[in-house]
């Protein structure tokens, strides 16, 4: 068997640190145990793609480019006009999607290994995010359940607000260590714990 490795394995062992006031007002970590498949429709296949997703995921393709569709073990993101991400805990679903999405239905590309999913959670999470992304984080602009594709230090990320004080970042794998160090440096004044979650939803 091939062992699967997180690029953050050494970093996650590094532990947390206290903030300026002696407290740790955030948890920063990696969420594991999920699969990501990008799917797309071409000009004539939108309906066929929607039907395949409806059949295999049990939900419609999202129409909003801002709001995450949460559906059982799956989360769907509309990342461009006719391109979507499906993140799921169920590997069988991505495999089934890859099989079902034949060229006349659309295209699918596995991206599970291309991204690392970071979770930043706690009272100082929003203040921290304001230091690393050029995004309006006020709740009217980025409500709970919405997402934005943006950049951290010139590398693209998908930022999801999964709760008022909880953010998830899908970062490019090859930038993950650099992004991690950047986030931890920005989090210094607030203090943080480091954690790994196998089945975060």
């Amino acid at each position: 068997m091939f062992e699967r490795r997180s690029p953050l394995a050494p970093q996650l062992a590094g532990g947390g640190r206290d903030g300026a006031d002696g407290r740790r007002s955030m948890r920063i970590g990696e969420a594991r145990g999920w699969h990501l498949i990008q799917i797309g429709a071409h000009r004539r296949s939108g309906a066929a793609l929607a039907a395949a997703v409806g059949r295999l995921c049990g939900c419609a393709l999202p129409s909003s480019p801002r709001i995450v569709t949460a559906c059982g073990a799956h989360r769907l993101y509309r990342i461009a006009a006719d391109q979507y991400w499906i993140v799921t805990h169920d590997a069988a679903v991505t495999a089934a999607l890859a099989r079902a999405i034949t060229p006349d239905v659309g295209a699918s590309t596995a991206l599970t290994h291309a991204r690392v999913r970071l979770v930043i959670e706690g009272a100082a999470a929003t203040a921290l995010l304001a230091r690393i992304v050029p995004i309006d984080l006020r709740s009217a602009a980025l409500p709970v359940g919405s997402f934005a594709q943006t950049g951290v230090q010139h590398a693209c990320v998908l930022l999801e607000r999964s709760d008022a004080q909880r953010y998830e970042l899908y970062v490019l794998r090859t930038y993950a260590v650099s992004t991690w160090e950047w986030i931890l440096d920005s989090a210094m004044p607030y203090g943080y714990d480091v954690h790994v979650a196998q089945t975060e939803q």
Binding site: P65, R66, A80, V133, P134, A148, T150, G151, Q153
Partner: peptide, 23 residues
């Protein structure tokens, strides 16, 4: 860069909404 102090143009992306030109 995106977090630097050079943010100037704001560009209305038809898909994502208004964003900093550094994106």
């Amino acid at each position: 860069g995106p977090t630097g102090n050079d943010g100037m143009l704001r560009i209305p992306c038809p898909h994502c909404g208004e964003r900093d030109y550094t994106e």
